[in-house]
Amino acid sequence: MSIILRISLLIGILVYVFFILRMLKKEKLTLKYSLLWFFTAFVLLIFDIFPQVLSFVSSIIGIKAPANTIFLILIFFLLILMISLSSIVSIQHQKIKTLIQNVSILQKEVEELKKK
């Protein structure tokens, strides 16, 4: 990896981490859900600071240009993040459904009590 690529990657990671921290501070992101994002930044940072690690990993899996390994790892993390988002949405869907059902039944009961 060229020094320019390394520096721009470093700046990118720093901006990225700064944004996550800002969102956390503004409570637009829950800490629980930010952990995976932080971990992604951490792994990228290690590869950026120690390019020999990246070259080593690349040679093992047979990728000639180490930059491609970065892409591969990024895509891998994105997949995991997206699956976890789907899972969060599904869990919330289930909870909201139960909530709507119970609220609606309670509403009916309250109205019946009012009539009496």
């Binding site: 709507i100 059902q101 609606s104 039944i105 509403q107 009916k108």
Partner: peptide, 24 residues
């Protein structure tokens, strides 16, 4: 005698509300 669901749930969620009501 009816229950007005406060958001649209689709057939499954609707029928399930009936079962919850029956259970209660």
């Amino acid at each position: 005698n009816h229950i007005d669901l406060c958001c649209n749930l689709g057939i499954g969620g609707g029928v399930q509300s009936g079962y919850i009501y029956a259970c209660k």
